[in-house]
Design a protein around this nucleic acid. Structure first.
Lengths: 247, 247
DNA sequence: AGATTGATAATGGTCAGACAAATAACTGTC
DNA sequence: GACAGTTATTTGTCTGACCATTATCAATCT
């Protein structure tokens, strides 16, 4: 009899999404607490025995979580001293997971600003490279993304995903592995642009035409034009975001 | 009963300077094997029991190593399927440790090229930002680095460290956290420039004057000038490296 | 035959408790 | 007061067991 594969029918208060692996969940929770400032750099975490007891998990699960955080530069462990939060300069701020932990609670305005600055540096250059190296498949992916974006508008999740996908495709078309790694960071900035704009109900400017200009330049192989078009796009996005933030 | 084993019964040449934590050593060894292509994306690693037995370590130590690699996007574990090497697009290529694993064996020429491309995008922009925001302490750090560099030349370790420190200080002076994160990547590229140049004994061009030009512009607060000076510096470094590589 | 369902087995995931190693802090000595 | 040895605390590692997930394949039903 069709055993429910997914039934969480108990009286439990609905948990979030998939709890996934235990160590992952612990890492996420602790990581979010760190990047949000609940645990500040220099703070010493409660020792493994107590911590694992409090969380009702085994010490090994807790330790694996700590290893994850350490791998991302958030904490450092030493015998006798314990595990302490590392100075912010060592955090891997561009790691996708770290980024996502940042955005679990609302990130600070200054952090968003810094991400935008990075975008402004990276994306125009990426667009120029993409104009030089894009292949047919990548062009098609960009085109499809923009079509979807136009259809769905940024009000739907599908539209927003298409937006991110476009920027992702541009990065990919640079054929530069390290550069492509920044995709998640760019994506995070893009996502929050939309969120802020939605929030203020200020959808005055339609971003799609700006995107098409970038696309056209990349398709035509015009590097400088692509760079400039992307620069305009990011500048406008930043302006919109800033306007929505202060509002 | 085997007690804690630290002896070298097998004869594996692991005589480096890595007496650190065991899980860290395992992660490093496996990570290096992955980025060097010894284990290719899609490959399934031998299961935890066998792997830990072969390495003569406990399963927990091995698992913590795997967690580290997973946190850096190099592998993915699932029950029944096992742990497999992730597609390259998920690797955190800008993570300092991943980078260092890359450089444990000689990295491919194309990878170095990509890092240079990133440098060319990031560093000029960073220099411009630094010109706008640098404080006295950061300026002094840059100056001191260049003085050391001049004294020691790039033939000594101290001189090379000073070189990296200069570039690091510039990144720091941007007052942009995410951007500063790229310091290790830039540093890796800088380091290899020197290695290649040393190798070919072709120390024709003295890089110090180029550095001073960047410094002067940053000290003077001239953004455009700083950007251009840094652009020249990186371009020349790339040329030198390319020349040494083909030689 | 084809699709669906159920059992099987392989693997990672978690747990428990013990001992080892490192080291900050303390203590006694000179 | 400086130094050396001791101690206590914490992470690090080990062992062995059991749980959870899921790809695979066989049995069943349509």
């Amino acid at each position: 009899m069709a055993k429910a594969r997914r039934d969480e029918g108990g009286g439990e208060p609905e948990r979030e999404e998939a709890p996934g692996r235990l160590h992952g969940a612990i890492a996420r929770s602790l990581g979010a607490a760190i990047v949000s400032g609940k645990h500040q750099p220099g703070d010493v975490l409660t020792n493994e025995i107590e911590a694992s007891e409090r969380l009702q998990v085994s010490r090994s699960a807790y330790r694996e979580a700590i290893r994850i955080l350490a791998a991302k530069g958030l904490v450092e462990s030493r015998p006798k001293t314990g595990t302490r939060v590392s100075p912010r300069a060592r955090w891997r701020l561009l790691d996708p997971e770290v980024l996502s932990w940042f955005f679990e609670s609302e990130p600070s305005e200054s952090f968003l600003q810094e991400l935008y600055e990075l975008r402004m540096i990276v994306e125009p250059a990426a667009a120029a490279l993409a104009a030089k190296r894009r292949d047919a498949g990548q062009l098609e992916r960009m085109r499809a993304a923009l079509v979807t974006m136009q259809h769905e508008t940024l009000a739907t999740e599908a539209g927003q995903a298409a937006d991110r996908d476009f920027h992702d495709a541009v990065l990919e078309a640079t054929a530069n592995g390290p550069l492509f790694t920044l995709s998640s960071s760019i994506g995070a900035a893009v996502r929050w642009t939309t969120i802020f704009k939605q929030r203020s109900r200020d959808l005055a400017r339609d971003p799609v035409p700006d995107h098409w200009k970038v696309f056209d330049a990349i398709a035509a192989g015009r590097e400088d034009q692509a760079r400039e078009a992307m620069e305009r796009l990011v500048t406008l996005a930043l302006e919109d975001t800033r306007a929505s933030m202060t509002a």
